[in-house]
Every structure is written in C-alpha cells, then in structure tokens.
C-alpha cells in the first residue's frame, strides 16, 4: 500500500498511449513519458482526477490558481482540443509539440493566429488587437492613454493589414510573422528539447525504448 505502480497511473483519466503520441509528434516515447511526469504533477495539483483544469493550469503558470490572464485563457482553450473544459494528456502532448524547437515555423504561425483570433472569425480584427494590447498593459501595470493605445494598434495595422480592409487575415499574418520572427519567440520552448533531463525518473523506470 502507499506505492502506486506505473500501471495504476496509466489508468488515469485522459491517459493516452505514448507510442501513439510519439508517432504523431516530434517527441520520442521516452520524451512523451517524461511529459507524463509533468502532466501528472499539474493535473493532480488541485483536483486530483488526472486531468488539467483551468485553475491547475493557472497555478502552474503563475503559482496562483486565481490569476486571470487573457492569454493564458486562450492557450488553455486551444490546448483543450475536445472543448470539454479540461486538458487531457494527449491534448497536452499534441499542443506542446507546436512549441518544440524542431516544429516547423508554419505550424507556430498558424497556432499564433488562432490564439490572436479571439472570436474565431478567421481574422484578427482591430477590436481584438486593441483588447489584447489593453490586457498586456493591465498585466504589466503600464498606463497608456487611449490615444497611445490607438496609435499602437494603427501602426501595427499599417504594417500587417496589407489590403487595408481593417482586419488581418491568415495570409497577411503569415507574411507579417515571417518578416518579424521575433514575434514568435514565445512559440518555442527550449525546455522541450531536454524534457527527459528535466524529468529523468520516469525514463529510468519506464523501460521504454525508441
């Protein structure tokens, strides 16, 4: 008693076969199993049901389960591929795969577009961009006048909205992001290259080979 075998852990809700996940992603089987260590930690932090709830995601990101953040909300919603309010293990791995250093830039550009298309209209609209600028100002406790915010949004639209129709479509975003790769820096997590180093215990115990 008191010792939970890896077989029992694997029956957690939302668990998915690492072999399948490794086939679909850049991760090896060992790396998927190391990611399971991280997943397990986050998904048992508040509600111990083996699924990542929004409060648990916020706790892992901010060390505070009540910290509201527009962008964390967006990331959570996009990771929640089944749209059932929780992130399952397979969703966690497939979504983090986009942030892998070896994942093609095109996938990162597409993910960032969905992230910024707050209302899912297929465009990044002026109002959405303004809402996001206001959110980051609020988060960083920076105070700018409404005029200054309008100027930032206008300037950005001047650069990105090539056909000047007042919204940024996917092709425009692709061109803009390709010209400004620094905008996608947050779409790559160097940690994912060394995930088995960060969580080595499972690799030693799992016996999985690639």
């Amino acid at each position: 008693m008191g010792c939970v075998s890896s077989k029992q852990l694997k029956r957690d809700k939302g668990y998915e076969d690492p072999n399948i996940l490794a086939k679909e992603t850049t991760f090896s089987v060992n790396e998927v199993e190391a990611l399971f260590q991280l997943y397990k930690k986050i998904s048992h932090s508040i509600i111990k049901d083996g699924l990542i709830h929004k409060e648990e995601f916020q706790l892992a990101l901010f060390r505070n389960s009540n910290q509201k953040n527009l962008f964390a909300d967006r990331i959570f919603d996009l990771f929640d591929l089944k749209r059932n309010g929780v992130i399952e293990f397979g969703e966690f791995v497939r979504s983090l795969n986009i942030f892998h250093p070896d994942t093609p830039m095109a996938e990162k550009i597409a993910f960032a577009f969905r992230l910024y298309d707050l209302r899912g209209t297929g465009f990044i609209e002026r109002e959405e961009l303004k809402e996001m600028v206001l959110a980051i100002l609020n988060e960083s406790e920076l105070i700018l006048s409404d005029d200054a915010v309008e100027q930032i949004v206008d300037q950005t639209f001047k650069q990105a909205d090539m056909n000047e129709d007042g919204k940024i479509d996917f092709e425009e975003w692709k061109a803009f992001a390709s010209k400004n790769p620094a905008l996608l820096k947050n779409m790559t997590l160097p940690y994912l290259k060394d995930i088995t180093m960060a969580f080595p215990s499972f690799v030693l115990n799992s016996g999985a080979s690639d």
């Binding site: 910024y116 930032i152 620094a182």
Partner: peptide, 25 residues
Amino acid sequence: RPESMNAFALISRSQGFNLGNLFEK
C-alpha cells in the same frame, strides 16, 4: 513612443504565454 511599438511584440511578452513556467519545479 507608442507609434514605434508593435502590438504583437507587446502582447507576445505576456506571462500568460510563458509556458516555460510549466517546467519550473
């Protein structure tokens, strides 16, 4: 200077995007 700021560069700095925090022990 607001006119030289890029909105996407600003918002990409949000802590909400800092998924590296998930890996901090």
